[in-house]
């Protein structure tokens, strides 16, 4: 199998995108213990705002990118205020918070659909070509071809994880986040403004999700209100495989899903690539529900 190395490269570059998306999911779960299924809508927001700025307002990418991330961050905060906080204050079950996030996602996607039509004459739009380097770098000796933007995504994903780790482990606000994650009531007694920590968590998750959406748009050019659907299940699988609430786990989970898919295809099973992913998920859930990197429920932090 002389294409093995190329498949490794393929898996890594796909995994980078999955991981970046999964990180935001994992961050919210690790602090709040709820699954934010509207994260896919935040992802879409990043691509949508980025495209709007580049295509309609003719902004350069270095302006569009941070603005798109911030916009996604604010949508994410909005989710906290609309879909999560009211339910949490009422003491509703985590399940109903999950359901409310589904409702919110539905609403955001529908609103995006309304916005798309007058802007782009339909529900499909494209980033202009050549915005990012997409000519492959050829390594003849190994018969490898590497697309630069994919590697850039890999670097950005890793950088964001390291930044996130630093923020959570080394800063005061990170300390507060961990305290809230450990026990909300104790944290409140210690004088931590729990509400503010939640808002910050959602904002950070939104930044990550927005960045993922924007990068996804830049690589594949194609943006629709529905691109969140493409990654929602994959991202979910990635964080469960990695361990719900574990940030490193989300990273590893993303690469793992990409690797499973890629090598299922490489051995000729492209029909069953997702069956393999879900099959493994199934087995893992039964054997080790907390995932590869997750801690058990009581020590989650």
């Amino acid at each position: 199998m002389d294409s093995f190395l190329q498949q490794v490269v393929n898996a890594v570059s796909l995994g980078a995108i999955y991981s970046l998306f999964a990180l935001g999911y994992a961050l919210v779960f690790s602090i709040l213990g709820v699954l934010n299924l509207a994260h896919s809508a935040v992802f879409m927001t990043g691509a949508f705002v980025g495209l709007l700025l580049v295509d309609k307002l003719h902004q350069p990418l270095w302006i569009a990118a941070p603005l798109a991330m911030i916009a996604a961050g604010f949508v994410s905060i909005l989710l906290e205020f609309v879909a999560f906080r009211p339910l949490r204050q009422r003491g509703a079950a985590r399940m109903s918070q999950l359901i409310s996030s589904i409702g919110a996602a539905l609403l955001i996607v529908n609103l995006a659909q309304l916005a798309f039509k007058p802007l782009w004459g339909g529900t499909e739009a494209y980033f202009p070509q050549g915005l990012v380097p997409d000519q492959p770098i050829v390594i003849e000796a190994l018969s490898l071809r590497i697309v630069p933007i994919r590697m850039i995504i890999l670097v950005i994903a890793l950088a964001l994880v390291i930044a996130l780790q630093y923020l959570v482990m080394r800063t005061r606000i990170g300390q507060q986040m961990r305290a809230v994650a450990f026990n909300q009531r104790t944290a409140a007694l210690l004088g931590i403004n729990v509400g503010r920590v939640y808002v910050l968590t959602f904002f950070l998750a939104g930044l990550l999700g927005g960045a993922a959406g924007l990068l996804y748009g830049l690589v594949f050019l194609n943006v629709t209100p529905f691109i969140g659907d493409d990654v929602a299940l994959v991202g979910l699988t990635a964080i469960v495989l990695g361990g719900l609430g574990s940030i490193n786990g989300a990273l590893v989970g993303g690469f793992l899903v990409a690797a499973i898919q890629t090598f299922s295809i490489a051995i000729g099973g492209s029909n069953y690539k997702n069956a393999v992913v879900f099959g493994l998920l199934f087995v893992l859930l039964l054997a080790r529900p907390q995932g590869l990197f997750g801690q058990s429920e009581s020590t989650r932090a």
Binding site: L35, R94, F278, L285
Partner: peptide
């Protein structure tokens, strides 16, 4: 959540 995800997986399979 774990049950939800496992059953989603079942549906996909």
């Amino acid at each position: 959540i774990y049950l939800a995800i496992a059953t989603i997986g079942f549906g996909e399979v």
